[in-house]
């Protein structure tokens, strides 16, 4: 459903991705693993059109999306939950949710504000709080909820567990597992090896802007050498 072919990208003069190729399949969860600085976040930003592709291409359902604006890419059905969460600080929690809900309402069985609050009851208690008054866990729940309200065909998450307490990590894990069983396609970037491999259907490992290994979660869990060499586990 999402194809990155020989993708090159970076920041100004600094090239970070050097011909990265990977594919995310519909209805499956693809985990992208790799050490700090490997280029995982850069990959996601390039998919979203936040960074220009300098070479190669990104395509979504067979349609080339590299070169399109983040606005057009979002409209095509890709929701992005960034590493920094990027909750709008000047907006209340309710306004943060409404922003996505109004634009992507989906008449039958889509995500609604009521449903995401059912998923994360904590957000229901925080509706009138400002976006700058949330704990890290709440901000992460809001960022995921906001992504779901876009009723996306593909949800992209960048390190959703970073900096969260174990109990919140467990909660996020269970919610993402529910979403996976409902058939939502996801791309998940993670440092937390156990978290990622327990959710993923497919795994790719990235190092220095290239894919250096791919396989199944079971295969990488069994492969100490790959873990040691590319992930430093």
């Amino acid at each position: 459903m999402l194809d990155l072919a020989d993708l090159s990208s970076g920041y100004g003069e600094t090239q970070v991705l050097h011909g990265l190729t990977l594919r995310a399949e519909p209805g499956r969860v693809l985990a992208i693993l790799g050490r700090n600085g490997a280029g995982k976040s850069t990959t996601l930003k390039t998919i979203m059109g936040l960074l220009p592709a300098k070479g190669g291409s990104v395509s979504f359902d067979g349609k080339t999306i590299s070169g399109m604006t983040p606005f057009d890419i979002a409209k095509l059905g890709i929701a992005y939950v960034p590493e920094t969460r990027d909750i709008f600080r000047s907006l209340s929690v309710r306004e943060n949710l409404d922003l996505a809900a109004r634009r992507f309402a989906c008449p039958d069985g889509g995500w609604t504000v009521a449903r995401v609050i059912e998923l994360f009851p904590r957000l229901g208690e925080r509706l009138n709080n400002g976006g700058d008054q949330l704990s890290g866990g709440e901000a992460q729940m809001l960022a995921i909820a906001r992504g779901l309200l876009m009723n996306p065909r593909l949800l992209i998450l960048d390190e959703p567990t970073e900096g969260l307490a174990p109990i919140i990590v467990k909660l996020i894990h269970d919610k993402l597992a529910d979403l996976k069983h409902q058939g939502l396609s996801m791309v998940l970037v993670e440092q937390n090896f156990g978290f990622a491999t327990s959710l993923a259907d497919d795994v790719v490992v990235v190092s220095r802007g290239q894919v250096v290994w791919q396989g199944s979660p079971a295969a990488i869990r069994a492969n100490k050498e790959v873990q040691h060499r590319w992930l430093g586990v």
């Binding site: 979203m48 936040l50 604006t69 983040p70 606005f71 890419i73 979002a74 409209k75 929701a79 992005y80 960034p82 990027d86 709008f88 600080r89 000047s90 907006l91 306004e95 409404d98 922003l99 996505a100 109004r102 634009r103 992507f104 976006g131 906001r146 876009m150």
Partner: peptide, 25 residues
């Protein structure tokens, strides 16, 4: 208003606003 919320979101972070399907241009 919703338009006001869009503008505040754009001032906070125009890139994230675009990723949420707001036509920032």
């Amino acid at each position: 208003t919703q338009i006001g919320a869009m503008i505040r979101a754009g001032v906070d972070n125009d890139q994230m606003a675009a990723c949420l399907g707001i036509n920032v241009e």
